[in-house]
Write a protein that binds this DNA or RNA. Structure first.
Ligand code: MN
Ligand code: MN
Ligand code: ZN
Ligand code: ZN
Lengths: 149, 149
DNA sequence: GTACATAATGCGATGCCTTCTCAATAGTGC
DNA sequence: GCACTATTGAGAAGGCATCGCATTATGTAC
């Protein structure tokens, strides 16, 4: 599991700083129940409720930074905004099946996909950050409904 | 290959109509060279240059509709806006390796991923539209540069 | 071919997620 | 503690995408 001290070490490597805001954000995602994903706005509200508010600007900046570092995963689960979750290695690593109509999201695991992704990145000389299989589909419930699009 | 008449048939099934604009958009994507992806704005400019302009609203509406039908794929290749390409079955089906710093995109094929995706969707009773493995990484060139984030 | 019902288009206005600007604050190394 | 400068917070700004509505035009029935 990624720790606060390893975050600090990685930040310092690049001449960056560990702030209470970054520590808080990391801890929120580390303790997030399986299957839950947070948007920037979700996180903002959650932190306000917890009594340790962080400005939306700072949240956006750090979600982006931590994704670029490979600590978080940036997911497109719904239209219009991103969702985030902690990026974990196998066997916790997983993928998403999304209904394009109701946005219902189901997680599933498949070890071989991460292996293939890592292999592909390595073959091209890339430094892997995240590997996500996203299945866009229509769920059984929405197939029965006669809603447009 | 998906044809104009099959588009017409699918639209009619739902009580929708085939318009010259929809036909044009489909043909643009069918003739797009391998590895090219278009944003809504790209498509808008391209059509204006070709002398058959289509309003941006109509482009947005139809890109979304055709993605929801499984005709096009909606891709997150860069920050801030979506890219589209035609959705093809094996052996043309492919995936994307993206550098998060310079947005360089490389396509790669892997038949087993689509098979796994189709299997997962089927097992859950979902109607598959698209299955995309996206690898976020840092390309060799960007690894050498000392750019922030 | 004509007429009708209504889906689709085009235009501008609007919405909303995200980024930007910049003064104030606060980590880090010495 | 001090200097340096990365980071934060607040509001303004940007930009992709959607909405509302009058107008146009497709598909169907006659
Ligand atoms: Mn997840
Ligand atoms: Mn492609
Ligand atoms: Zn659904
Ligand atoms: Zn790069």
């Amino acid at each position: 599991m990624y720790t606060v001290s390893s975050l600090k070490a990685e930040l310092h490597e690049r001449g960056w700083r560990l702030t209470p805001q970054r520590e808080t954000i990391l801890q929120i995602f580390q303790n997030l129940p399986t299957g839950e994903h947070l948007s920037a706005e979700d996180l903002h509200v959650l932190l306000q409720q917890d009594g340790e508010p962080i400005s939306l600007s700072t949240i956006y900046r750090n979600l982006k930074m931590m994704s670029r570092m490979g600590i978080l995963r940036e997911l497109e689960l719904a239209e219009g905004h991103k969702h985030y979750e902690i990026n974990q290695p196998a066997p916790y690593h997983h993928h998403h099946l999304i209904c394009v109509r109701c946005n219902k999201t189901t997680e599933f695991k498949n070890d071989s996909i991460l292996k293939m992704g890592a292999k592909t990145a390595q073959k091209e000389g890339y430094h892997l950050l995240d590997c996500q299989l996203t299945i866009h589909a229509i769920c059984p419930s929405c197939q029965r409904s006669i809603l447009p699009i």
